[in-house]
Design a protein around this nucleic acid. Structure first.
Lengths: 91, 91
DNA sequence: AGGGTATTTAGAAATTTTTCTAAGTACCCT
DNA sequence: AGGGTACTTAGAAAAATTTCTAAATACCCT
């Protein structure tokens, strides 16, 4: 939820890859896990970090837990970056 | 220089604060150091991380080393974020 | 040249992060 | 109910990061 947490969450390559995987839409923890050569517990840990940072949302259906991007938090981070004038689309 | 390095560099609060301090322009290592309750060696370490990440540039004049933002790398990071549609200014 | 100032480098301690295995929880489905 | 699947939690090991002090480097200036 807090800014420092969000940046910490974004600093790990595995977590960034998860975010990219979620671009098309919801995906279950197990399906996400399959993409990595790591234990399910480790991926669960990364998902919890992303969730704590507010970057993803979770929902349950049957035996599965689905994760999806929370785009509003991305906007906040973008806003932080825009103070450095890096935003070419700025007026 | 590499993407993962850049995100790692941005994950630390001290380093982000340094970046904000550099917005108005060049500043010497010593002057930056004064803003923090840490040894000069520690700030030097953080500056080296930011430099390695390409986020800042260094130049020397007399007995001082000056650091300044390297805005082009910020743009690259913004670009990464824009894939998530977080950029409100996008066409 | 040589003392002084600014900053970095080295090496080690402290802290945090990442990862694993094993065990636990929760829900599905017959 | 009870076996099975999906996922998380706990606890510990391994790895990476942050910080410090002390020493080194580099340049200024008289």
């Amino acid at each position: 939820m807090s800014f420092p947490e969000t940046f910490k969450a974004l600093s790990d390559p595995v977590r960034r890859e998860i975010l990219v995987m979620l671009k098309p839409g919801k995906m279950s923890a197990g399906k996400i896990s399959q993409a990595f050569d790591m234990s399910g517990a480790t991926i669960s840990y990364h998902l919890s970090q992303l969730k704590k940072a507010g970057l993803i949302l979770e929902s349950k259906y049957k035996n599965f837990i689905y994760y999806e991007l929370n785009t509003s938090v991305f906007e906040e981070v973008m806003l932080w970056f825009s103070q450095f004038g890096g935003n070419k689309n700025e007026k």
